[in-house]
Design a binder for these strands. Structure first.
Lengths: 175, 175
DNA sequence: TATTGTTATACTCTATAACTATA
DNA sequence: TATAGTTATAGAGTATAACAATA
């Protein structure tokens, strides 16, 4: 497994903070809006990938807030939905989450009644994770939201371009 | 300004931890390596962008370690290099760092003798940031490393494909 | 002996409030 | 009154060590 965690939320949307961008003083002397040369950084793949990821995640956070799901929660629920009986360790491996950090998430999802922890059929140390009926409904709705989100966040890209983008990204990180 | 921070390091490279992937037991029963369906997550732009960003950043962290620079430090040094006299607030705006969180970084770079804080020519509240001779040397080397890193981390992409990828990413997050 | 899930805990990153000095 | 830099601190995310139960 690579060092690519898909777990964290990176950052919650901040309450609007006072930036130094000139909004009310269109022509005032505003050192904070003097054009800064960022062209080199914008030539780097890592910089662009990170900015784009954060842009998408920002929208994701907003639209998933009604479900009470962070990206990592959505990822966990989705993995369970598509892999009934999956274990915590398997989720950790797939999302590169460290086991101690998953415990609280699983516990919270269980407490919300979204998942069930059943005894594993062949390994009594492990637990097979399943979605509850409510969890299934929530995950289905959230997945629909996540899918719709795609076209909105990449509204400046055609469907083909979006596919190309995702394909190129996969070729960067997949083995 | 969007909610896209280019500041944090996401994660330091971990010491090799014992994953559950089967390496020494090719055909053993290993629940951790049972194929898990992640196809849906891999169809999402945010997931792919984040995984790719983390893959690039992972290599970035390794290669920048000799310079003692995290991604955010490199970004700050690079902004100062390309914008001599830039202020802290301008760096904060460009990288979406919160001012209190930049203080320590600037202080550390100053203590290392990589940057100089001069009195701002027109605003006595502010400081114009400049690279020291040592800072210039380090930044130049680091920038060369960052540039070379591109082709290595995206070795499966042609030069044209890499350009296409970065262009598509910019169209996702740039206004 | 090794692995699953877990607790405890430390460290890093990010966020908010409030202060000073200057504008 | 608003802004630049700063301090202090709270909160979220990520890391390691170690444990009981089971393989």
């Amino acid at each position: 497994m690579s060092d690519a965690s898909v777990a964290n939320t990176l950052r919650r949307p901040r309450a609007a903070r006072k930036t130094s961008s000139a909004a009310a003083q269109p022509m005032a002397v505003d050192p904070g809006s003097v054009s800064i040369d960022t062209t080199y950084l914008e030539s780097l793949l890592g910089y662009n990938a990170r900015r784009a990821a954060l842009a998408v995640i920002g929208v994701f956070l907003q639209r998933m807030a009604p479900y009470g799901l962070r990206p990592v929660d959505f990822s966990v629920l989705t993995l369970i939905a598509h892999n009934p009986g999956i274990t915590s360790r398997q989720i950790c491996a797939a999302l590169d989450i460290l086991p101690p950090n998953l415990v609280g998430m699983i516990k919270a999802l269980d407490k919300r009644g979204l998942i069930e922890r059943r005894t594993h059929p062949t390994d009594r140390r492990a637990q097979g994770l399943h979605l509850s009926p409510e969890g299934k409904k929530l995950q289905k709705s959230a997945q629909g939201t996540a899918t719709k989100l795609e076209s909105d966040v990449a509204s400046r890209l055609s469907a083909d371009e979006l596919d190309t983008l995702k394909s190129l990204l996969r070729r960067v990180y997949l083995p």
